[in-house]
Design a protein around this nucleic acid. Structure first.
Lengths: 356, 356
DNA sequence: TTGTACGCGTTATCAG
DNA sequence: CTGATAACGCGTACAA
C-alpha cells in the first residue's frame, strides 16, 4: 500500500515548477499568494476578482515571465488555434502565394498553420489527414486529390470545419474557393484562335482532377466555338509536372503537322515546355505561340514575356482562411459558410502569342 | 456540499465518449472489456500483456477507429512532434525551396511543421516566437532578423533545440546552416571583372544582416583583388525587396557615369532590377550586365537567361531538420550538434553577362 | 499479466 | 471575491 497517494498530501507548500523550466499558473499563484484558480481568472480575465489581487497576480506573472501552456489549454477547451493546410506542392507559384494569403490571415487572428505537401498522392494525403486530425486542428484548408472523396466525407461528417481550395468536390459539405477554370481556358484558347491559330495543342494536367478537366473542357469549347476540331494528337497529358511537360512538348514538336500554338495548363508545365522549346531551337512566338494557366512573377521576364491566365491566388488564400474562421467561430450556423466561391481569372496578354 | 464529487463515483459503467466524437482510450477499453491502462499499453506497446488481450484491444481500437489524442499525450510526455519554421517570406524561391526540404524530412520522421513569415520585422518575429514556445514546439528552425539576438539567447538557454538557417548569430549556442556568402559574392564579382567590367554596381540587402554584409564584403574584396575601386555611388541598398530594387536600379541608370554591370543580392531584387531595366529600354547584356545571388527556376527562361549564384536551399532545409532532430532526440549530447555548417554556392553562368 | 490511481497545466464549477 | 477541486485524455508507477 503506497505511503503517499497524492504528493500534495505532504508537500502542499513545496510545489516546484516543472522540469520544462516554464512557469505554470501555480507558480504565479504561489508568488502572488493566491490560489491557482484565482491566478487563472485574472490572467484569462473571466470570473471576478478584486483590484488588489489583479495587481498581485499580474505582477507575479510578469516577474516569472509566465505564458500559458497552450497544450494544457487545448486539452481542456478542445480547440487548438491551429489549422491544417494540405496542398499539392508549396514549391509552385500558385500554392506558395495562396499559402502566404492563408498565413497572413491566420496570423491576424492568432492561428498557427501546419503545412503539408501531398504531391498529389492520395496516400500522402491520407497520412497527413490522419496526423492533422490526431492533432485536433480546429479546421482544415486543403486541395483534394483524386481518391480522397470518401475519406473527406467522413472527416466532414465528423464536424471538422473544412475549406476546399482550387478544387471542388460535388456533394461534399464544405466551402470551396476556386476559379472558373473553364472560362479561363476558353479565354486563353479564344485568344489564340483570334490570332488565327487553327492547330492549337494543349498540355493538360491530371485526368480526373477537376481543374484539369475543366481547363480541358474550356479548350474543347473554345475550339468548337471557333469552328476548330479537337485533334487527339494535339492533346497531351502533363500531370501538372515539369518533366512530363518536357516530354509532351518534344512529342508535339516531332509531329509532321505541327501545332502552331500550345496551351499549357499550369506553371511548372510552362517551365518544362519553355525548356523543351528552347532546347529544340524553336522560337516563341515566331515558330510557335505559347499561353499558360497561372501567372508567376517570372512570366514577365521570360523570353518572350508570357501571355498567361492569372489566378488571384493570394486572395484565394485569404478568403479560404476567412471562410474557415467563420465556420470555426460560428459552428452552429456552419451551413451559412459552405458556399462554393468561384472567382474569375484574368487574361494577361504579353508577347508569347503571335498572329499566324 | 456537492452530491457527486467524481462522475465515476456513480456512473463507472456509464461512461460515454466525449463530445468531440473522437473515441478515447477508455472507449476502446470498455469495448475490449479491459481497463484503460491496459488498452494504453497494447496500443502504445509497452509494458506487458497477454496475447488474447492484445487481440481484443486491437480489434476494439479498429472497430471504433481509435486514434490517440496527441494533445493529451503531449501534455503528459512534454513533446509535441512539432517544429516551428520561422522565415522572412515563404514567397521567395530560396525560402520556398528550403521549407520544402524541411517539410519532406519532417514528414519522414512524423513531425509537423508550423510555418511563420516574419517579413524581416523583428516585432513579427518576437510575436511568432512567443506563440511557438507557448505551443511547446519541440524545436525551432529560423532565420533571425536584426534585433532578435538577446531574445534568442534567452530561448536557447531555455533549452529549446534551435537551428539557424541562412544567418549566423555569433555567440549563440545553436546549430547553423548557411552558405559562404562572401565567397559566392567574390565569385560573382570576379566573373564580372574577368569580363572586363570596371564599374560594377551592387544592390545590397539590409545593412547589418549577415548575409547582406557578407555579400557586400565579397563584393568589396573582389573589387580590390581586381584593382578596382569601391565607388559609393555604385552601392545601393535594396533591403532584399523587389520594389526597393526598382528604385535603386533607376537611380543607377540615371547616373552620368553609369555602371556597366550590376550585382543583385537576391531573387526578388533581381526581379525588380530586370523590370526597371526593361522599362528603361536598357538591354541585358548588351547595355548592362546582370548577375544575381539565388538561382530561381525562372533564371533559365528570362531574357536573357540569368547568370546566378546558386544556393543549395533544398539541401539546406533537409540539413536543418536533420540537425534539429539530432538535438531533439539526443538532448544530453546536444552540444555535439551545434556546428556551424557552411555550404558552398555555385556560379551558374548563363547569358546575362557580356564582355565589355 | 492486469487494474487502479495520479499527474501533466488548464479551465470552470461549486461552495463559502 | 476567493479557494478547492473535477475534468480534459494519456502515460505510467504501483499494487494486486
Amino acid at each position: 500500500m503506497p505511503v503517499v497517494k497524492k504528493i500534495e498530501d505532504i508537500v502542499v507548500e513545496r510545489y516546484t515548477s516543472p522540469m520544462t523550466g516554464r512557469p505554470t499558473l501555480r507558480d504565479v499563484a504561489r508568488r502572488a499568494g493566491v490560489s491557482a484558480g484565482m491566478a487563472g481568472r485574472v490572467l484569462g480575465n473571466y470570473g471576478s476578482y478584486s483590484d488588489v489581487t489583479r495587481r498581485k497576480v499580474q505582477a507575479a506573472a510578469k516577474a516569472v515571465a509566465y505564458s500559458p501552456n497552450v497544450i494544457a489549454r487545448a486539452l481542456k477547451t478542445r480547440h487548438t488555434k491551429t489549422v491544417g493546410v494540405l496542398i499539392p506542392d508549396i514549391t509552385t507559384f500558385f500554392w506558395t502565394t495562396m499559402v502566404r494569403g492563408i498565413q497572413d490571415r491566420a496570423a491576424r487572428d492568432g492561428f498557427s498553420i501546419v503545412l503539408c505537401n501531398s504531391d498529389e498522392e492520395s496516400h500522402n494525403e491520407k497520412a497527413y489527414l490522419r496526423t492533422l486530425v490526431e492533432r485536433s486542428i480546429d479546421g482544415l484548408i486543403m486541395c483534394p486529390t483524386l481518391d480522397i472523396h470518401s475519406f473527406l466525407a467522413r472527416l466532414s461528417r465528423g464536424g471538422t470545419p473544412l475549406v476546399l481550395v482550387d478544387r471542388h468536390v460535388p456533394g461534399l459539405r464544405a466551402a470551396t474557393i476556386r476559379v472558373d477554370n473553364r472560362a479561363g481556358a476558353v479565354e486563353a484558347v479564344t485568344h489564340l484562335a483570334a490570332l488565327g491559330h487553327r492547330r492549337i495543342a494543349i498540355i493538360k494536367g491530371i485526368d480526373g482532377v477537376e481543374t484539369s478537366d475543366e481547363r480541358f473542357a474550356g479548350y474543347v469549347e473554345a475550339l468548337r466555338d471557333n469552328g476548330l476540331k479537337v485533334r487527339p494528337s494535339l492533346v497531351k497529358e502533363g500531370r501538372f509536372l515539369k518533366n512530363r511537360a518536357i516530354t509532351a512538348t518534344q512529342e508535339l514538336l516531332r509531329m509532321k503537322d505541327r501545332a502552331s500554338a500550345i496551351f499549357v495548363c499550369n506553371e511548372p508545365m510552362a517551365s518544362g515546355c519553355m525548356l523543351a522549346l528552347k532546347e529544340s531551337g524553336v522560337r516563341v512566338p515566331q515558330d510557335i505561340s505559347l499561353i499558360c494557366f497561372d501567372d508567376p512573377v517570372w512570366a514577365e521576364y521570360t523570353s518572350p514575356p508570357l501571355t498567361t491566365v492569372s489566378q488571384p491566388s493570394y486572395t484565394m488564400g485569404m478568403l479560404a482562411f476567412d471562410y474557415l474562421l467563420a465556420q470555426i467561430t460560428d459552428r452552429n450556423r456552419k451551413g451559412k459558410y459552405l458556399q462554393d466561391v468561384v472567382l474569375k481569372t484574368t487574361l494577361v496578354v504579353r508577347e508569347s502569342c503571335a498572329k499566324v
